[in-house]
Write a protein that binds this DNA or RNA. Structure first.
Lengths: 111, 111
DNA sequence: TGTTTAATTAACTGATTAGTATAATAAAGA
DNA sequence: TCTTTATTATACTAATCAGTTAATTAAACA
């Protein structure tokens, strides 16, 4: 899987409110599939599929414990996303800052 | 459009390498649809659709100039993404740090 | 006015997504 | 062993996505 594919998978996994809500729950600690499904007005298989998507994207991992599958957050992809986003944010805001500076300079000369 | 819908739209717009590449091009400055399409081995209507997706997500804006449609980056949604991501990143890494501290404490007591 | 250039719309196809209901698996507990 | 609990697999539907070709719009230019 290329870096691009990883970003694709992570971004599209995050592009669903249910999956973001699942991650939010996991921020409070490891949880089973049933526990994660509880807040949603949705069948268990549907939640199970969302969890599978998160796992495929590397955003969570799963460990088998008795009849439970405990889900845990993984931070690597979110760091990828954060660094991609930050890089572009600074480039873009840098551009605007540069433009602001230019405009300020032009005003300066007008006076 | 709720905040959640905005995040959905932004994340899913970013979940395609062509769209991320278009944004990367726009980081170098405003460009027309034809100019943006040039690097891709893809028909113009296909690129036009990707640009529409970016516009709908608020990631770019368009201004009509003669027969050209000039595309410009918009920073608002990327800031939303950055803040969502950073929030979760710090929570998660905080958790791990907390866990590290806990483990360190336990080791301490063992000695 | 007729032609070229820039871009979008329309109509279509194949693949993927998000959900459902139902069946199956697998471990735990009575 | 039989039942319950936890979870996934299967099979299906409706909707959306990513791409195509061909037609259309609209401004610029000769």
């Amino acid at each position: 899987m290329t870096k691009d594919d990883q970003l694709d998978a992570a971004f599209s996994a995050l592009a669903h409110p249910v999956r973001r809500a699942i991650l939010a729950q996991l921020a409070c600690g490891t949880a089973s599939v049933n526990a994660l499904a509880e807040p949603f007005d949705m069948t268990l298989p549907a939640v199970s599929k969302h969890i599978r998507v998160l796992e495929t994207a590397g955003l969570i991992s799963r460990e088998k414990n008795a009849q439970f599958r405990l889900c845990t957050l993984e931070t690597a992809p979110i760091r990828e996303i954060a660094s991609w986003t930050e890089r572009y944010r600074t480039i873009w805001e840098g551009r605007f800052n540069a433009m602001d500076t230019l405009l300020a300079d032009m005003k300066e000369k007008d006076q």
